[in-house]
Design a binder for these strands. Structure first.
Lengths: 339, 339
DNA sequence: TTGAAAGCGGTACCAA
DNA sequence: TTGGTACCGCTTTCAA
């Protein structure tokens, strides 16, 4: 069924080696021979057998991606961008979802290593760096996305989370909020960075968070709307009441929105809200939600670039960190007088 | 670096063939030998080289998935379910997104065929069946999901779209709506099926759509909210005005919601709305949206089962069609007196 | 510029 | 029950 080099070689009376060289544009092939071979390849619609090539070169032309949850819009967009970037260079992408479960993630990593992918891209749900040591043992290059690890010098592509927090908080302050609260995320680098940005923006105006103004939101990433709702209720019970809130992500912000409206307060007049992630349909909510956009597609593209540079470089260059600039999308939930 | 059969064989003083047989639990191996080999495999953390195996068996242990848009929640969920189902049996999943572009989809198919995936799963954006003939030529089994093609006998897993339309429309009628309209989707099997279900539900009560009550919605799948908004404005201008509307999908329904509220009408009192797809956060909208759930995860699981059965069967069984039953999730947008 | 020979790491077949 | 041998389709090396 499938056409092989051998078939082309036989048809043309040349050797298999010659065909192989033409395929990879080796320089030492006569112009005429090259043309004949290329012509025949087209005619037969020849497709090299990647398994055979992988066996001898040790390169599979495949990358592996592991995300905590493929149905999360952010990761879906990253996956899409990554897949496109890699495919342009002839790389395939094997995707798996770890369900935010470190143990499952570890097994996925083993699976992909067993498959000899040329490079791994991971948005990790781990708490320790153990798995990454394992990857390093296999000498498989890898790129972390979204979440970083303190004390692990690794290639990284993500958004500048401190900038996210500072931008959102600064915007709320500029919009006239005097008492800005924050609903935190889980103990991962993204949440820590955003909380830090929140503090920095306050500090830049000589302010500090009031007591109880930093509330715990989601522990995991799922059902953030529920935990956002609960956290906001706690914040509303405080005295004085916050008049602005920056939420770790959009689901949390949606839950917060619900809590505020239920309490009979107005958004943004009484409490202004900013989320993060800029989910689709943010503008179709009860109050269209202002949100910091993380440009997930660009994170995917950058990760693809970095991953490709790693597999192509023969040496192991020292880890690079790529930070994508976030942008603020202002909608009604934070649109007040002074903006 | 990587451990090979040869290493294990040498360590144990047996032949490579013996090791190979143990790995695949061939029956004709002595109990003692088998144990020694397994023990050594564990010790060295042996992982078979799938490229080598693929070369000789012709099977890659990989499946390919092509969807129109990976960031669409429905397809993301399908991909997740599929990936999980396949991985359990040791299959990897290569995913690509065709951006609703038939030409791009065709190229993706070629790519995956060139990679010799063992089976393809496709939610197709094609208009013709040409690409599928091409897949058949390569003798690669494939499963269509979500969208079917008239005149193509193929394996299929999807939701029963006629049931979707009938269920949503029946619910609106039961909720007291007298004049139910429909905003259609593009000319693909899913939209045609739902429209047919809409007609059947009306006919079951001796009704027929009033003039102009079936409005054209999205042409593609993106920005459905915009086209839903426009379509709903046209519907509201009709006399008599519809008091219920079944929308092809949730984005369209969200746009419709917006149009209704902007017109100063109430949902569900003046116009009840039902969408389809049950997107996350449907309940956080301005009016929580009733929607027909397609159980996308189960579609993924079923597709995995079907795909696995295809690669495992030596004969080419005749195509099977698996229809998943939809369920209705009632929320405020259709919650009226009589329900 | 071209090609013969030697593998890459497995599996299949058949003989011992 | 075990293992020798051929070979899967391609690349690498080196000699012609």
């Amino acid at each position: 069924m499938a056409v092989r080099m051998k078939d082309i070689a036989r048809d043309l009376g040349v050797s298999v080696v010659t065909v192989s060289k033409v395929l990879r544009n080796h320089s030492d092939i006569g112009e005429e021979t090259r043309e004949r071979v290329l012509k025949r390849m087209k005619e037969l619609n020849y497709q090299p057998n990647l398994a055979a090539r992988a066996l001898v070169t040790g390169r599979t032309s495949m990358a592996g991606l592991i995300v905590p949850d493929l149905t999360h819009p952010f990761f879906a967009q990253v996956a899409k961008g990554l897949s496109q970037g890699l495919r342009k260079k002839g790389y395939g992408l094997i995707i798996s979802s770890s369900e935010e479960d470190p143990e499952l993630e570890r097994r996925e990593i083993e699976q992909l290593l067993a498959r000899r992918v040329d490079v791994l891209i991971i948005a990790s749900a781990q708490w320790t760096v153990e798995s990454f040591r394992r990857i390093e043992e296999c000498k498989t290059p890898y790129v972390l996305i979204d979440r970083q690890f303190a004390g692990l010098a690794a290639n990284f592509v993500g958004v500048d989370d401190v900038a996210v927090g500072a931008m959102a908080t600064g915007h709320l302050l500029a919009a006239g909020a005097k008492r800005v609260a924050h609903i935190r995320g889980p103990e991962v680098s993204t949440a820590l960075g955003r909380a830090e940005g929140y503090r920095q923006a306050l500090a830049a105006r000589g302010l500090a968070p009031l007591a109880g103004y930093v509330a715990a939101g989601a522990s995991g990433d799922d059902r953030g709307d529920v935990s956002g709702y609960q956290a906001m209720r706690r914040l509303l019970a405080l005295e004085p009441r916050p008049d602005g809130v920056f939420c770790y992500n959009d689901p949390i912000a949606m839950g917060a929105l619900k809590a505020i409206l239920e309490a009979g307060l107005r958004v943004p007049e009484d409490v202004a809200v900013v989320g993060c992630g800029n989910v689709l349909y943010a503008e179709l909510l009860r109050v269209p939600l202002s949100s910091v956009d993380q440009d997930s597609a660009s994170i995917g593209k950058q990760a693809a670039r970095l991953a490709l540079s790693l597999v192509e470089s023969k040496t192991r260059p020292r880890p690079r960190s790529v930070l994508v600039k976030p942008t603020l999308v202002v909608r009604q939930s934070s649109l007040r007088q002074s903006v």
